[in-house]
């Protein structure tokens, strides 16, 4: 069999989703943002919501997300993405509205907006990229930075006396009445990426079905900020991040259980 015989449109197994355009992404090599962007583009395509999606980009590394995924975007002030999403979803209930936020945006400056939007049960989906560091500004300590983890603003490691404890935002969100689906996923290998895709799809479907607010945390790497190679960063994440941020569904009121039947 020659290469030409294999390389035919009917044999195509996987290609970059058409919604993810050809602009070169500004993310560092190996950044988890790229994988999540790809998943979001694939899911919107599969749902056929290309013309009916409004996304809200944060301040942080993903601030230029509007350059890469060809849907309508609004760029919100730092941390205010859930507030903007609330307005858009209330005015346009037939639109798929989601925010795409990092840990500095969602769990630090935007904690109030995020908690209240989730608690009000706005029919939006929030994608929360948690890499335990401020990536864009040069690897400073974030609220989600692990204990003992070294960053440029805590070069001897995070200590409780001085810096307090890391914030488990997703656990907080799971206790709120307004949330219908709260989950923590990762994108470090093929199996995890498939699970993360299902989780994001479910969050988007909940948003369209008006079931309440959904939060999908993606535990991610910041290999540039962590000063590791992309491969080593994934290993470090598996060893350290997953201990403190265990993967899995924290809350799912949409699931069909024996009680609800």
């Amino acid at each position: 069999m020659t290469e030409e015989e294999i390389m035919r449109p009917e044999n195509l197994v996987y290609k970059k989703p058409a919604l993810l355009n050809d602009n070169p992404m500004h993310y560092c090599p190996g950044c988890s943002h790229g994988v999540v962007h790809k998943l979001v583009a694939e899911i919107i395509e599969e749902m056929g919501m290309e013309e009916k999606t409004v996304a809200i980009s944060p301040v942080g590394c993903a601030v230029f997300a509007y350059n890469y995924i060809d849907v309508d975007w609004v760029e919100a002030a730092h941390g205010r993405a859930p507030a903007v999403a609330t307005a858009i979803k209330r005015l346009w209930p037939d639109r798929l509205v989601f925010t795409y936020q990092g840990d500095g945006d969602l769990a630090c400056i935007g904690t109030a907006e995020s908690i209240h939007a989730l608690n009000r049960g706005e029919h939006i989906a929030i994608i929360f990229i948690n890499n335990a560091i401020y990536g864009m500004t040069g690897g400073q300590m974030a609220p989600t930075t692990l204990m003992g983890m070294k960053t440029s603003t805590c070069p001897y490691g995070r200590v409780a006396d001085l810096h307090g404890y890391p914030l488990k935002f997703t656990e907080i969100a799971a206790t709120l009445e307004g949330t219908c689906y709260v989950t923590r996923q990762s994108v470090h290998n093929v199996a995890a990426i498939r699970k993360a895709k299902k989780a994001i799809r479910k969050a988007f479907e909940n948003s369209m079905a008006g079931k309440g607010a959904s939060l999908v945390e993606i535990v991610s790497t910041c290999n540039a900020g962590w000063k590791l190679s992309p491969e080593k960063a994934n290993q470090w994440m598996e060893e350290h991040m997953f201990k403190f941020y265990p993967l899995g569904d924290l809350k799912d009121t949409t699931a069909i259980t024996e009680d609800s039947l």
């Binding site: 390389m7 290609k15 970059k16 989703p17 993310y27 943002h33 790809k38």
Partner: peptide, 8 residues
């Protein structure tokens, strides 16, 4: 992460 690979 950058969607560079097409598979047949």
């Amino acid at each position: 992460p950058d969607g560079c690979i097409t598979v047949y």
